[in-house]
Nucleic acid binder design. Structure first.
Lengths: 158, 158
DNA sequence: CACCTGAATTAGATTTGCCTAAAGAATTTA
DNA sequence: TAAATTCTTTAGGCAAATCTAATTCAGGTG
């Protein structure tokens, strides 16, 4: 059975809401995915037909076993990608988050797994090199925020 | 002006066709994107309205300056991602290709840039570690293709 | 208990991207 | 150059995902 990117996003949102609050409400899903409640109801009906969500109107909403497994798999990719982008590449958290949030729906198992292994391996084998890389990049980041400072200083001291 | 993932894919396909053959034909775009020719015509009309493609029916098809720039940007991300997946992570080429083909449309400039820098840095700073990682993974790959061999050997030699 | 409020739902419409079938244009070939 | 083939285009429709407006429901309060 085909499951779309968007459906995966719905499942993931529901999974996180359940983990955090213990209940899943239409309103909250809508907020999380930045859509209107009617769109959520549409999605719930479809997901329910596919056996990924338990849904009867006006009743409590739950993921089925199958739905939860998909959500977990997606979310674990999300975590691993975010970590890689921030810890290894030194990407700012909000951007890392956005990139992960998209790629998580496309990345092959093998690639995800490999990224995780690579991160571990490289941190163990050459932690200092990584640290150095991050440090370098962070520095450049900051100088972008305040691009004039260095130059001005030079002028003053020269 | 909003440009969708799919539109970016059309631009990229056209860009590559032009680079390779010097002409862009509906038929070839369709083949590349695995859609039927009428879908391509629809897309061309929209892209033309957005000023990304020069299109008059039955006439030659060209990217505009603007369209070409978008395609180039996308394609350069494609290349860099593919290289990272294959050369650093040791992902098989077809899978690396597919992952790149999706992520290229979402990855932020900064992340793409950082991946490129990281690949360069790590290859310079600890080329041996990378080589070792790849080697290890490749080995596991192969043993997956022929999972019985080792065991059978053992039995025979024991 | 009746009412009020906020949440959930339905109805109906829009947009994007794709399709098939059929018609029209261009190119190749006999 | 006329016919055959191939490519391109139009017409008409479908499915996914979204929206707004209006309705229905559930829970809390006077």
């Amino acid at each position: 059975m085909e499951i779309s990117k968007r459906e995966e996003e719905y499942l993931e949102a529901m999974y996180l809401l359940y983990k955090k609050k213990g209940v899943i409400r239409v309103r909250d899903i809508a907020r999380k995915l930045r859509v209107r409640p009617p769109s959520v109801v549409d999605a719930l009906k479809k997901l329910s037909e596919k056996g990924l969500v338990e849904y009867e109107k006006y009743d409590r909403i739950l993921l089925t076993e199958k739905g939860r497994k998909i959500a977990e798999k997606t979310y674990s990719k999300h975590l691993l990608l975010t970590e890689f982008f921030t810890n290894i590449l030194g990407i700012p958290p909000e951007i890392a988050e956005e990139d992960a949030c998209q790629f998580e729906h496309y990345v092959h198992e093998i690639t995800a797994e490999r990224i995780k292994e690579f991160a571990k391996y490289i941190q163990e084998q050459c932690p200092y090199v990584i640290k150095q890389f991050i440090k370098e990049k962070m520095k450049n980041e900051k100088s972008k925020d305040t691009p004039e400072v260095e130059e001005v200083k030079d002028k003053h001291t020269s």
